[in-house]
Amino acid sequence: MPCCPLCNTACLDIFSKIQQKTYYNCPTCNGVFLDAIYFLSAEEEKARYELHNNDIHNIGYQKFVSPIVEDVRTHYSKQHKGLDYGSGSGPVITSLLRDSKYDITTYDPYFDPNQNALSGNYDYIVCCEVMEHFYTPFKEFNMLHSLLVPGGRLFCKTTLYQPGVKFETWWYKNDPTHVFFYSENTLLWIQKNIGFSELFLTKNLITFLK
C-alpha cells in the first residue's frame, strides 16, 4: 500500500483515478499525492520544464512572483543572504532582487545544480511554484528548514487544494510534473512536524518562520 511521502501514513483508499493515474488523500496531513508509479522520468520532467515560458523580462511573470519579491523586500535588505530554491530556467525572482543589489543564490536540480548552494545558511529562501513538484516533501522541507538561520523565512507559492473542490476537474493537477498537493491542514502539519515556529498564509503567499 502507498504511504504518504510527507507524513508516511499508509493510505488504503484511492482518492481519485483520472486517466489511469491514481491519487491518494492522506488522512493524517490531508495532502493529496500521485502514486509514485506514475512519476515522469528525469528526462521527461526536464523536457516538460523546458516548455515553460520563463522569460525574466515578461511583465506578467514578474507580476505573478511579485508577492514573494515584495515580502522579501519588506523583511530583508541587501545585507541579508537568500536562496532561490527551484529557480528554473528563468529565475525571475532572483533577477528582480539582484536588480536591487540583493544577495541571492540560485539552485535548481535541472537548470542550476549548484550543490554548494545547499551547504550554506540563509536568512530567507524563496520557493515559487516548486513544492507541488516534490517527490519527497518531508525530506525537502526538512532540508529547507535546516538551511535557514534561526528566525529565517521560507516564502512559498503554490495553489492549495480547497475543501469542496472537485479534484477530477481541478486544473492544477493537470500538469504531469505536479505530484503533491497541499491544503491548509497540510501546511499546518509541516509547521508543527518540521519545526517551523509560525505559519503565515495569505491568498498569494505561504510563509514559514523558523
Results as ranks from 00 to 15, higher is better:
Val72Thr: 01
Leu201Lys: 10
His52Ile: 11
Gly90Val: 09
Ser77Glu: 03
Ser41Gln: 06
Phe134Glu: 11
Ile14Met: 07
Thr158Leu: 08
Leu199Ala: 04
Lys81Ile: 07
Arg73Ala: 10
Met1Gln: 03
Tyr110Asp: 09
Tyr102Lys: 01
Leu147Met: 10
Gln62His: 13
Pro27Asn: 10
Phe167Asn: 06
Leu205Lys: 09
Gly164Gln: 12
Gln162Ala: 12
Asn8Val: 01
Thr74Ile: 12
Asn142Met: 05
Ser197Ile: 04
Gly90Tyr: 06
Leu97Lys: 04
Gly86Ala: 03
Gly152Glu: 05
Glu43Phe: 13
Cys128Thr: 09
Phe181Met: 04
Tyr135Met: 04
Lys81Phe: 02
Glu44Gly: 07
Val179Arg: 03
Asp112Ile: 08
Asn53Lys: 15
Val130Tyr: 01
Gly88Glu: 03
Met131Ser: 01
Asp99Arg: 02
Ile14Val: 15
Tyr102Asp: 03
Asp108Ser: 06
Asn58Ser: 14
Phe138Lys: 15
Lys139Cys: 05
Val179Gln: 02
Asp71Leu: 06
Phe196Asp: 02
Trp170Val: 08
Gly90Ala: 05
Phe33Arg: 02
Lys166Ile: 14
Tyr161Gln: 10
Tyr102Gly: 00
Glu132Lys: 00
Ser100Lys: 13
Gly195Asp: 01
Lys192Ser: 10
Thr22Tyr: 08
Lys46Tyr: 12
Asn121Leu: 07
Ala36Leu: 07
Tyr76Thr: 05
Tyr85Gln: 00
Leu6Lys: 07
Val92Trp: 02
Met131Cys: 04
Glu198Ser: 12
Phe208Pro: 01
Ile93Phe: 00
Leu147Cys: 04
Gly31Arg: 04
Tyr76Ala: 03
Ala42Arg: 12
Val69Phe: 10
Ser16Met: 08
His75Gln: 05
Thr186Ala: 09
Ser89Ala: 14
Asp13Val: 15
Ile190Phe: 10
Gly151Glu: 10
Gly120Glu: 11
Thr106Leu: 00
Glu129Pro: 01
Ser95Ile: 01
Phe134Tyr: 13
His133Leu: 02
Ile206His: 03
Val149Arg: 13
Asn53Leu: 11
Cys3Lys: 14
Cys26Trp: 08
Asp175Arg: 04
Phe138Ser: 13
Gly152Met: 11
Gln191Thr: 09
